[in-house]
Design a protein around this nucleic acid. Structure first.
Length: 762
RNA sequence: GCCGAAGUGGCGGAAUGGUAGACGCGCCGGUCUCAAAAACCGGUGGGGGCAACCCCGUAUCGGUUCGACUCCGAUCUUCGGCACCA
């Protein structure tokens, strides 16, 4: 709010909207535990938050308010889903969900505590369901291109880059034709095709489709047990590099086509079905995880890349996996090449022989949007016996979420238990058909809502193209860093997809991004009801007012870091605002009685112009805490100057006028009131931010710090424009400095203009 | 575990590689008051010294530099994210 008000005072036409991302799990949970319908609960919360935001003096344009859980909004979720479906960007596939066998329901990760259901403490398992995905991976390379972003925190870009996780490598097939299956090979992705001669085993993900078919009779039971165990383990656990690598031999072999060797096939939970092909070639000599695995199961370790000084394998074996570059060895006709040359040569050869190809793999996975929940946007699809999957025609939108569904857990998607919702006619052939009963991930709602703000009541589409042209993309977005790799990536993907559909004309939704922090409770923990550390804005605003509340939140610390609330700390800000009131209410006519001190007038003007400059720069960069500190210093100065009656009334009027204008975005109510009482025309919030004069802000004299060998030994007042030679001369002339340089050779003197001289003696 | 951050007085924090601790809270002292509160004024990193002033000090250890809270390496701790919280 402060930033929006500041931008308006810079002369911008500011669209500062508000909305409620109102679908999702919390509403459903609260509704279940309180027996209130999610809609009722959500709307009453919204009503309360509107009131509280209003009480803080927020200038949101309420005429543009968006609420995601109303049909006027979510019908466009459905419409956009259909556009993505037609563009081939939405598809169905099997994917596991977390399942509580006791509650007979799907669980969110958040509802899993130590591998058990948070409600009934039963150990969880996983089930495969047909679900809807958005093909975000198609945009992986475009999402790695950050050139359209003007100003985003570097750390967010780094996190997105690592999350997308592009790696170049090769896919190669290991021959299993001797098993006489319809599948002739196991495809595996590797970034180290140069180590292919070091392969001594293969590991498949436990979920790999070939696992049951490659398991020997003797190993059947052990494999089944291991797969069941893996189904209970979370991916975070499975990826832990600390965890002991485990696996089970399938009792079968695959052939490394490059050397004709047979290698044993294992399953292991450190291999994930969601990355690469779900199968890895085990090269223990050159991969740390593979080495752990080989040691545990006593598999051969064969070094195939070696540093130039290497003189053959050590009898005691490899201490750790060799990850560096080197020369190819034990690699047939590739021996003697550098491994980089080997990489190219092998890749070319396997491409020629049809065994594999160079490829790029991403860590990024497609976006699973299906939720087996009630409180979300119904996915607008119909399943017909004859026609298959049929999209709901646009004229049939919105597919309304029935108000009377059973949203408590029953064992299937809540909407599946609502016959009137499920049973419909096929839009194509008119025969009886079933509706899709899953709802959408709420990240879908938040992936495009900013566009809706341009035209929140538009009926012809999700947004009015003319108004999009006028306002979008968003110039300044603020949001928490916790959104780094999901919401912020999903909305970037949506924007690019909508651009390719011809719906928007730009490829990035947010030009500038600022991460705000979180105001914590007095105990330095996140505010939560269970911790009992929640600060109620109604109470604080009621006691000390909206301006003190706003200013204190901004004064706690750097806005991007957040910080702890303090019930006593806010008194300091409240006191300051009271002093501001007192100082601004002084009658300047009183000053004309005495004689102004010209030096104090000059100092006052300088401080005023420095303060305008500092606050302007700070407010542009969300540095509210230091802007307020600067205003406090000016308040202290004006207070002193008034007591001594050292300035003339014209200077005083200039100071108070500019002060109030700077205060306006921070403490809008007090600023407006004082503005009016000073006789200025309504409203202070329609004024421009004051301008500063660099000449008036410039210092006449500076404190020259004099160091000897980097330690401060003296401070000298000198004219601001002093030359390097003069500064060094003055520094060396200082008696304090001389007591340190006495009898020693001055080897060097470093002058930092306007700051210090460092005399180096030795 | 992996990815990304952060660590400065009693507390919140300030400091383009150049005066560490701005501003505020708290505390101590004073003015006013019968007294208290409020308000106002002054002091306040630690240690030493009558004082001038000196030494130490930005999580820990090491490095780069004339000079490091700031840059580099390692370690510890805390926080955000890890794909169904949003």
């Amino acid at each position: 709010d402060c930033h929006a008000r500041f931008r308006r005072m810079q002369g911008y036409n500011v669209l500062h909207p508000i909305g409620f991302d109102a679908f999702g799990l919390p509403a459903e949970n609260a509704a279940i535990s309180r027996g209130i319908h999610p809609h009722t609960w959500t709307m009453s919360n919204i009503q309360n938050m509107r009131r509280q935001l209003g009480s803080m003096g927020a200038i949101y344009d309420w005429g543009r308010e968006i609420i995601c859980c109303v049909p006027e909004y979510y019908r466009w979720n459905q419409w956009l889903f259909l556009q993505l479906y037609r563009a081939g960007l939405a598809y169905r596939a099997k994917a596991p969900v977390v399942w509580c066998p006791s509650c007979q329901t799907v669980l969110a990760n958040e509802q899993v505590v130590d591998g058990s259901c948070e409600r009934c403490h039963t150990a969880i398992t996983r089930r495969d369901l047909e679900q809807w995905f958005f093909r975000i991976t198609k945009y992986a390379d475009q999402l790695l291109d950050f050139t359209g972003l003007l100003d985003w925190p570097e750390k967010i870009l780094t996190m997105q880059q690592n999350w997308i996780g592009r790696s170049e490598g090769a896919e190669i097939g290991f021959d299993i034709s001797h098993h006489r299956l319809d599948v002739k090979e196991i495809r595996t992705f590797t970034t180290r095709i140069d180590t292919i001669f070091g392969v001594t085993f293969m590991v498949l993900a436990p979920e790999h489709p070939l696992v049951p078919r490659l398991t020997s009779k003797a190993q059947h039971e052990a494999v089944a047990d291991y797969v069941a165990q893996a189904r209970r383990t979370s991916e975070i656990e499975r990826q832990s590099t600390d965890k002991e690598k485990t696996g089970v031999f399938l009792g079968s072999y695959a052939v490394n086509r490059l050397n004709g060797e047979q290698v044993p096939i294992f399953i292991g939970d450190y291999v994930l079905m969601s990355y690469g092909t779900g199968a890895v070639m085990g090269v223990p000599a050159h991969d740390a995880r593979d080495l752990d695995f080989a040691r545990k199961y006593d598999l051969p370790i064969r070094q195939v890349i070696a540093p130039a000084t290497w003189d053959g394998p050590d009898a005691s074996g490899l201490a750790e996996a060799y990850l560096g570059d080197g020369f190819m060895t034990a690699s047939g006709r590739y021996d003697g090449m550098t491994n980089q040359e080997g990489k190219q040569a092998i890749a070319e050869d396997i491409e020629k022989r049809g065994w594999g190809s160079r490829t790029v793999s991403y860590r990024l996975r497609d976006w699973l949007i299906s939720r087996q929940r009630y409180w979300g946007t119904p996915i607008p699809m119909v399943y017909c016996q004859a026609c298959g999957i049929v999209p709901v025609p646009e004229a049939g939108l919105p597919v309304l979420l029935p108000p009377d569904a059973e949203f408590k857990p029953t064992g299937e998607s809540p909407l599946a238990a609502h016959p009137a919702f499920v049973h419909t006619a096929c839009p194509q052939c008119g025969a009886p058909a079933r509706r899709e009963t899953d709802t959408m991930d709420t990240f879908v709602d938040s992936s495009w809502y900013m566009f809706r703000y341009t035209s929140p009541h538009y009926h012809e589409g999700p947004f009015d193209p003319a108004l999009m042209q006028k306002w979008m993309p968003v110039d300044q977005y603020t949001g928490g860093a916790e959104h780094a790799v999901m919401h912020l990536l999903y909305s970037r993907f949506f924007t690019k997809a909508l651009r390719d559909l011809g719906l928007v004309e730009f490829g990035e939704p947010f030009l500038r991004l600022y991460n705000q922090g979180i105001i914590l409770g007095e105990d330095h923990e996140k505010m939560s009801k269970s911790r009992g550390n929640v600060v109620n804005p109604d109470v604080v605003v009621g006691q000390l007012g909206a301006d003190a509340t706003r200013c204190f939140m901004m004064f706690i610390g750097p806005w991007d870091q957040g910080g702890p609330w303090s019930d006593v700390g806010i008194n300091g800000v409240a006191r300051w605002l009271n002093r501001v009131w007192g100082v601004m209410e002084h009658d300047p006519a009183h000053l004309d009685a005495g004689a102004a001190n010209s030096q104090v007038v000059r100092d006052t003007q300088r401080l005023l112009h420095q303060t305008i400059r500092k606050c302007y720069q700070d407010l542009e960069r969300f540095k509210f805490n230091t802007a307020i500190a600067a205003l406090m210093e000016l308040t202290n100065h004006l207070s002193r100057v008034w007591a001594e009656a050292d300035v003339d009334s014209a200077t005083w009027r200039e100071c108070t006028r500019s002060f109030l204008l700077i205060l306006a975005p921070l403490a809008p109510h007090i600023a407006e009131e004082l503005w009016e009482r000073a006789g200025h025309p309504y409203s202070i919030h329609q004024q421009l931010f004051p301008k500063w004069d660099e000449e008036l802000a410039a210092e006449d004299t500076i404190t020259l710090v004099v160091q000897v060998n980097g330690k401060v030994r003296d401070r000298i007042q000198v004219p601001a424009g002093i030359s390097s030679g003069q500064a060094q001369e003055l520094a060396l002339a200082s008696p304090k400095v001389q007591s340190y340089t006495q009898g020693k050779a001055v080897r060097q003197a470093v002058y930092v203009p306007g700051r210090l001289v460092n005399v180096v003696v030795g």
